[in-house]
């Protein structure tokens, strides 16, 4: 049950999807609280979300400065304890920069920002984001990024495949991501990063509720 789960939504200066994440999580019955990046603890949170946006202006590289924000030590400890951490878009970029997820996000093939709704396919259900969802399930979820082109070295890629850590793949690769990767998880399956925005697909009035499936799974793992 996702009811009553406490989620810490981290706010860096330059984050902009924090209120959207709170709204979507609360719609699913969770209690979400904004935690400023200067905090050094996550309070009594059951789960952590790093939302989308442009933390520290994305200056240098997306996530490159955010990884040094004080709150990230607490996030790393939380992750090490096996507890659920979700990085959405810029949050995914931060998780890779912080070394909590492997690989990196490069500029989109085509060198343009892309805001559009894409089809995703669940590639693995071993992580907190997709537990209980059948592999091959199609989800319609928006993307919104300039640097969403996932890449990693061949050894890491083989390892991701072997360990079933590719969580979501694009049906029609929009950005040049290696292996059409839209989201991956760590070895424990408790830290997940994805470029698409599930919180933008939690309201039929906005066009899709497919994001609820993912966020509900995440909350239930908390």
């Amino acid at each position: 049950m996702s009811q009553g789960r406490r989620v810490a939504v981290v706010v860096f200066p330059g984050s902009n999807c924090e209120h959207d994440a709170v709204e979507a999580l609360e719609r699913l019955g969770a209690t979400a609280e904004l935690v400023f990046h200067r905090e050094t603890t996550l309070g009594n949170a059951d789960a952590v979300v790093l939302p989308g946006g442009f933390a520290h202006g994305d200056y240098l590289r997306p996530g490159a400065i955010a990884r040094f924000s004080p709150v990230m030590s607490a996030v790393a400890e939380f992750a090490a304890a096996g507890r659920p951490v979700l990085g959405i878009c810029n949050g995914f970029q931060i998780l890779t920069e912080a070394g909590l997820l492997p690989g990196a996000l490069q500029k989109n093939q085509g060198l343009k920002f892309l805001c559009t709704t894409v089809e995703l396919e669940v590639a693995s259900n071993t992580s907190v984001l997709c537990s209980g969802i059948s592999i091959g399930t199609r989800l319609s979820i928006p993307i919104n990024h300039f640097e969403g082109n996932y890449t990693c070295d061949p050894v890491t890629y083989d390892q991701l495949v072997l360990e079933e850590r590719i969580v979501l793949r694009y049906v029609d690769n929009p950005n040049g991501s290696l292996g059409s990767i839209a989201g991956i998880c760590n070895e424990g399956g408790n830290v997940v990063g994805l470029m698409p925005h599930p919180e933008r697909a939690c309201d039929q009035l906005l066009g899709s509720e497919d994001g609820c499936v993912l966020l509900r799974s995440f909350l239930e793992a908390a």
Binding site: A24, K112, F113, L114, C115, R200
Partner: peptide
């Protein structure tokens, strides 16, 4: 005109119906 508005975040704040 989607060549242009695809480059704009037009969904932020979960308001765009």
């Amino acid at each position: 005109k989607s060549w242009a508005y695809r480059q704009y975040d037009h969904q932020l704040f979960l308001n765009t119906v």
